[in-house]
Amino acid sequence: MFDTRHIKTFHEVVRAGSYSAAARSLGYTQPAITQQMKALEREVGTPLFIRTGRRMRLTEAGEAFARHAETILETVAAARQQMTALTRLRSGRVRVCAFPSANATLIPEAMARLRDGHPGVRVDLLEDEPPESLHRLVGGECDITLAFTYPGLRDEVPDELVEIPLLADQLTVLLPTGHPLARRRAVKLLDLADERWIAGCLRCRANFLHECAELGFAPDIAFTTDDNLVVQSLVAAGVGVGIMPALVLSFLCHQRVTGRVLEPASRRQISAYVLREHLRIPATALVLDELRTVAAARVGC
């Protein structure tokens, strides 16, 4: 491994034409230049200079090394510049994978804050539902994953991941406008046991079935869809009732649908996940901080 200080000195000796001229240019003593060049010759394993009288010229190996020295120094300088920019958060790229409603709410707010404070940090957005999104994180396809879990249906988190809780997202019952239970402030799940249901994504549906089973009934699921707009449209048409997280209702709410708090309260936990060693990467840590900030503002969601 070459010492870049020796390469820099070598480059200056070649440019200046002598050890003494290079010493004056670099602010070294001539013996210091001599020692550095001897050390570099030991590193490359062959002489780089020969003297002919009072003049000094490059050996064949020295000429070959000189052709590479400037490129090496430019590469090192560029690397230092980039590392400085990354550590001072003037630049950086972070890949975030989130589920749809997080990409529609938490992510835009966090990205707006990031743009204002650190415009050089860029974020690539991916979309996937858990647990696939967690698999993508472990597989190196992204740097941060936003995922949700339900209290009774938690997955095992791989040991190499750190979970950072962001938000407890309240579940809301969706009723068609004019439904008799829409007059209540809160609705018990058991009071809807005889209703036809519009079920959502696979994970949400599994939680819904689990909660119904805990209350002793099996719901009549008329339709299933991953599309939140379709769920609300079907409820608005009066063909069933549904359950939807408050985070979704904060940006998407059909005018002919009434939302009521589910009783007893049921919530999904939204968390960020990151590889443990990536917590030390400045740009990744910054994006996590912004996500915490916007999630804290939605605690009442």
Rank of each mutant, 00 (worst) to 15 (best):
L40P: 06
L174P: 02
V230T: 15
D289Q: 14
E156V: 14
S250R: 11
A110W: 05
S25W: 08
Y19T: 04
L89P: 06
A193G: 03
P108S: 08
L26A: 05
H254D: 15
L209V: 09
I144N: 00
A66R: 11
Y150Q: 03
E129Q: 13
V121E: 05
Q170D: 13
G53A: 08
Q170V: 12
F49I: 01
E214P: 00
T258K: 04
Q269F: 09
Q170K: 14
G259F: 05
S271M: 08
V235G: 01
L190V: 13
P282Y: 05
P180Y: 04
G139V: 01
E63Q: 13
D116C: 10
R185Q: 14
R80D: 15
L252V: 03
G240W: 06
E70G: 10
I270G: 00
R67N: 10
I107C: 07
D143V: 00
F2G: 06
S250V: 04
P151Y: 10
A85I: 02
V14C: 12
A61F: 02
E290R: 11
V235Y: 06
A168G: 11
S250K: 06
L209E: 12
P219G: 02
E290T: 09
L125N: 09
I198F: 03
H254P: 00
F208A: 08
T4N: 12
L229F: 07
S133W: 02
T75V: 12
R24G: 09
A112Q: 15
E129W: 13
T149F: 10
A265G: 11
S271E: 07
L209P: 00
A193D: 06
T29F: 08
A16E: 14
T225I: 06
F10S: 02
V173P: 00
H68M: 14
T75Q: 13
I243F: 07
R298A: 09
M83T: 14
V138N: 04
E109R: 14
Y150E: 07
F99Q: 00
V261S: 13
E263T: 11
V294H: 08
V248C: 04
I221T: 04
G45P: 09
P282G: 07
V299N: 11
V241S: 06
T149N: 09
T4M: 15
V13W: 01
F148V: 03
D226M: 10
R57D: 07
R183N: 08
S233H: 12
V274N: 01
Q35G: 09
L189G: 05
F49T: 00
A147M: 04
I144E: 01
M37C: 01
A193V: 03
A222Q: 13
A39N: 12
R5L: 14
R292W: 05
A16W: 00
A272L: 07
V96H: 01
L286S: 03
E63T: 11
E160I: 10
D116F: 08
G27E: 09
Q35E: 12
T105D: 10
I144H: 01
T145V: 14
Q30G: 03
E141Q: 14
D155G: 11
S18C: 08
D155P: 02
F148G: 05
R196D: 15
A39F: 02
S91Y: 05
R203N: 10
